[in-house]
Amino acid sequence: MTDRREWPLYEVFVRGKRGLNHVHVGSLHAADSTMALRNARDVYTRRNEGVSIWVVPAAAITASSPDEKDPLFGPSADKVYRHPTFYPIPDDVPHM
């Protein structure tokens, strides 16, 4: 019998030429992180998208649970005063 266990899953983040931060672009399988980097290059940057790649084992990511959505994010839904939109902006401030 051939062992068909799958390789671990990696999440891929790519920084584009004009981007300042790495953006999640997808995931892939690889035997180790070096191979994950090579695979990410082949799968996610073949159309000249990136100048830098991060790969992270998917298992290393701690994610918030959908069940906690209300206690985590609900309280901020009605606090419009937390946006700094109640101040007059001086005319000589170009971007806010």
Binding site: W7, L28, H29, A30, R38, N39, D42, V43, R46
Partner: peptide, 8 residues
Amino acid sequence: PDLEDDVA
């Protein structure tokens, strides 16, 4: 053998 190597 794998999608990743296919693309490579």
